[in-house]
Nucleic acid binder design. Structure first.
Length: 118
RNA sequence: UGAGUAAGUCGGAUGAUCGCAUGUUCAUUUGAGCAUGAGGAAAGUCCGUGCUCCAUAGGGCAGGAUGCUGGAUAACGUCCAGUGGGGGCGACCCUAAGGCUAGUGCAACAGAAAUAUACCGCCUAACUCGUGUUAGGUAAGGGUGGAAAGGUGAGGUAAGAGCUCACCAGCAACUAGGCGACUAGUUGGCUCUGUAAACCCCAUCUGGAGCAAGACCAAGUAGGGACAUAAAAAGGUGGUUGCCCGCUGCCGUCCCAAUGGUAGGUCGCAUGAACCUAUUGGCAACGAUAGGUCAUAGAUAGAUGAUCAUCUAAAACAGAACACGGCUUACAGACUUACUCAUAUC
RNA sequence: CGGGGUGUGGCGCAGUUUGGGAGCGCGCGUGGUUUGGGACCAUGAGGUCGGAGGUUCAAAUCCUCUCACCCCGA
């Protein structure tokens, strides 16, 4: 997972929020959109409702680590934004990992799954 | 041993695997090695500075801030040493603490009366058999209130009253000590309600905005920029934080595909009112001199995480965003030093 | 990062400037009216004035600290 695989520009975030499809479970919300490139970019949004800056940083780092470890099995050509919900504060790393896997399967972004046309 | 007061320190550690940011060396397409990598409050943004820009920051008014004294400091609403007041047996702690005797305002309800007074009461005189009525004196006692015109005691009086005296409190002047806040003493007249975190007065300070400040490079897009004061300088029309004075642009001409500048990028950006050691001035805050240290966070969707093992067990509050000096607020647990009181023993 | 505002019965608000009685509308309870309901009439309950401290005789109001929410600028 290189620097180019990070979603950074505010303009790109706005595009995904506006035109992308959304999936959710009890811990996460995911926005996804085809970007027309040959690689996938991932961004993270942790809102102020989650907690103070220490809590927000910890959650963002954990999600980033989960995505980094499993990035090799994600399909190319998508912009993805992950937004944690408030109950993420109370769950541990393994539960968060299974929540991320669950939402990736819902959106069909793993390489052994079918096409997502979002 | 128990209870307490003050000051200060730490605030998870070590190892292994994967991964991040910056710097540097080697390779120079990918990459590899090494070093470093959040706090005591980084927080709140409550003050003060540095730094940057503003075409008016100049003068005056208004507004704002501070408010016992002396000192420290780049500066402060901070700190130190004192003074007065308050609390504690004590160690010690708290203190927006200038001026209502410059002026104005306000003081509900209760109460007779709220800055002036006579409801009950006390006393005297007249009238009445008498309960009492009328006129006058009084501020001791009662009741109301946060506050009723010094307090306590004695003398005095028809009853009373600083009316007189003693002590105490307060005020003014003088003398002595202290740089000063103030303290001590003497004398005097004889007493003055509270509120300035009410307007206000006095003393001191005060231009505004803020690193998303601002400087440089510069796609797209768009026409833009420079100079001058000639007939008149009067006038008109704009700008200049609330107002006035004052200051200033335009009411002309010329030039240019370059100029200005958005997205984006580079800088600002970390060597600083820095830290350590020694000597030295000062009660202290703090300073002076000499030597030494510095890659020791510097991002821009924003770097510290995940798993395992051991200690003892998972640890509190909490994450730099230009920097610094303070204040305030949050904080599991552990520890150090000095002092006070009580009890017991020697 | 900077600037500004709000917090008062269950809900929406006034009162804060100039300190002394805590109020208004809707809603709620009870009674009346109606064959019954609505509307209407009468009456009643319900508030630590976001929290803590201070000034004052007295604080929703003045001052300081603090918490939550909302809006604006770049």
């Amino acid at each position: 997972m290189d620097e180019k695989n990070r979603l950074k520009k505010n303009e790109d975030f706005k595009k995904v929020y506006k035109y992308g499809k959304s999936y959710y479970n009890r811990n996460l919300v995911m926005y996804i959109k085809k970007n027309g490139l040959d690689y996938t970019r991932v961004g993270f949004t942790v809102t102020k409702k989650i907690g103070n800056s220490v809590v927000r940083n910890k959650i963002r780092r954990r999600i980033k680590e989960i995505v980094r470890q499993n990035f090799i099995s994600v399909k190319e050509g998508y912009d993805i934004i992950l937004v944690p919900k408030k109950n993420v504060v109370d769950i541990n790393f393994q539960e968060l990992e299974s929540a991320v896997f669950h939402i990736f399967k819902l959106a069909h972004v793993f390489k052994n799954q079918g096409e997502n046309n979002g």
